[in-house]
């Protein structure tokens, strides 16, 4: 079982001198494992910025589609932030950090965020489709 788990925890596969070399240059290999989380967080900031720009430029404040999208992105982004914090606490601490309550919070926020995004997307798609088919050209 230990060997099986080692496949999932690449940090234990690394030779000690690699970890030490990383520390000399200020790069903690364990911190590196939290890097994808960080990029996910950045991605949420980017798409959130795009939506806010669209709202500001197009004056789409009254459009529920953009509001729902933004709400979904905020909830999903918050979940990613908590996820990142958990991984960073492990990476920078002496032992593995894991909280069942934080895990539930992360997943619930992600569920709500993605559900809102998918709902708004499908709602927009099907609502726009109907008048286009009904209108004679």
């Amino acid at each position: 079982m230990e060997q099986f788990l080692n496949l999932f925890f690449f940090i234990d596969k690394l030779p000690g001198w690699v970890l030490e070399a990383g520390r000399i240059w200020g790069i903690d290999m364990a911190c590196l494992c939290a890097l994808p989380n960080f990029f996910n967080l950045i991605l949420h900031f980017i798409i959130g910025g795009i939506i806010i720009t669209a709202i500001m430029k197009q004056g789409a404040r009254r459009d529920l589609f953009f509001v729902l999208l933004l709400l979904g992105i905020i909830l999903s982004g918050t979940s990613k932030f908590i996820d990142w914090v958990q991984n960073m606490l492990t990476a920078t601490g002496q032992s593995v950090f894991f909280s069942y309550n934080l895990d539930i919070t992360t997943e619930v926020l992600q569920f709500l965020g993605m559900a809102i995004i998918f709902y708004s997307l499908f709602r927009r798609f099907f609502r726009r489709a109907r008048p286009a088919q009904a209108t004679p050209v």
């Binding site: 788990l5 496949l7 999932f8 925890f9 690449f10 940090i11 234990d12 364990a30 494992c33 939290a34 994808p36 989380n37 990029f39 996910n40 991605l43 996820d83 958990q86 991984n87 492990t90 990476a91 593995v96 950090f97 894991f98 069942y100 895990d103």
Partner: peptide, 25 residues
Amino acid sequence: FTPGLRASLGMHNYFTEFALLTGLS
């Protein structure tokens, strides 16, 4: 599998988060 492992670090984290990153992108 994260709650069962009581962690999301290393290769498991890499796989989960990179797949998520690709998907969300």
